[in-house]
Structure formats: C-alpha cells, structure tokens
Design a protein around this nucleic acid. Sequence first.
DNA 1: TGCGTATTTAGATGAGAGGCTAAATATCTA
DNA 2: TAGATATTTAGCCTCTCATCTAAATACGCA
Lengths: 95, 95
Amino acid sequence: MPANDVWRALSDPTRREVLRLLRDGSRTAGALAESFDVSKASMSHHFGVLKSAGLVRTERRGQSIVYSLNTSVMEDVATLLAGLVPRHAAKRVKT
Amino acid sequence: MPANDVWRALSDPTRREVLRLLRDGSRTAGALAESFDVSKASMSHHFGVLKSAGLVRTERRGQSIVYSLNTSVMEDVATLLAGLVPRHAAKRVKT
DNA sequence: TGCGTATTTAGATGAGAGGCTAAATATCTA
DNA sequence: TAGATATTTAGCCTCTCATCTAAATACGCA
C-alpha cells in the first residue's frame, strides 16, 4: 500500500463515493456503476485505481465481479492521516 | 472547508510534507520552501492550495508570512476519513 | 524615497487524469 | 458451440495540475 497511491485514490470524489457505498456491504462492479452517471468503462478505471491502492478487494462470482472494502488497509489510511494531524488535534474517529 | 478541496490538497506529496513540517510549529514561507527542491513560486502555489482548503492559516510578520496548521480543520479531516472507514475498522487515531 | 528581502502572481509548458466509444475477454446458459 | 451478459482494455481527447521563469507586490530600513 504505497501511501502515494492511497492519497491519489482518495482524491477523486467518485472513488470516495464508491468507498462509501461499499461501507454498507460488497457490490458487483455493475451495481456500483449504476449509482454513477458515468460509463461503465470509466467506472472500471476507478475500480482499478482503488484496487491498485489496496483499498478494495475483488472476487469473481459467476459472471460478476464483487468489490468489497479492504478494511485492514482502511485502518492504515487512518494511520496515514494521523501522521498529519498535530497531537492536540487527536480525536476519536467515530464511524 | 469544501471536502473536495481538502482531499485534493492532501493528494500531493509535497503538500502533505508541508503539513508534517508544520506539526512541529509555524514556519515562514521561505523557511518551508527551503525544505523542498522546488522553486519558491511553485511552493507558493502549494501554500495557496493548502490555504484555500482551510488546512493552514497565515499571518504576516514583518517581511515574512508565517504559515501554521489550522488545527480545527485538521480535526474535520479526521471526520471526513471516518465517513469512509467501515464501523468495524474504527481505531484510535494515535498522534 | 530608494534599495534589498520575502512572497505571490502571470503566463507558458509537459505530464497525467478522467471521460468516452468500441473492441476484447470471461462466464453462464440454451 | 452460439449467444447473451458482465467487466475490462485500448485508443483517443480534453482538461487539470505541478512546475518553471520572469515580473509584480509588500514590507523594512537607511
């Protein structure tokens, strides 16, 4: 999980929304894509960015590919952020 | 603090390093710029991005302009991140 | 006021990102 | 195997971003 890839992945609003959707459970590429007003090809590109950053995992199920959050890496992201926040700004990350 | 601006500001490694430097205390634009192998004009651009995202504050001191972290906004950033991390991935953000 | 220092703004450039359509690949089912 | 469905890859285009140099602005001090 190169930190640079993670930050870059998070810099796009579409990708952040994908992560938010995945908070509620795994979804197929197609199901995710339907939530956005963007071509499936473009969504596939976003999925690739999220995947190479290690933020999501994939699993084939029949004809579909199911995406889910890689929760352990999401924890690492919290740590990355902690490296920027000054000590007295520490707070409980409520989820 | 539009969330988009914050994430965009954080997506650049130079800007993240600026924030890390500011964790240890305020610094002038020139002092910050010396830590990077980039022109002062480019650094000024980065400062502008950080500032318009609300991540840093400025204060003129004589000929210099002193940059410091906007700690309250850094807390908000932690909240933004929390909006992406699934419940069972919650963790103490150690700083 | 005039000069030196500190910083930002203007304008140009090259690389990269995200978008699209069309084609390719993988899987299921008849 | 043929056809339908799901997803990714390829190729192209446009726009944004980080960077640079040069010029402009702001301040302190003689």
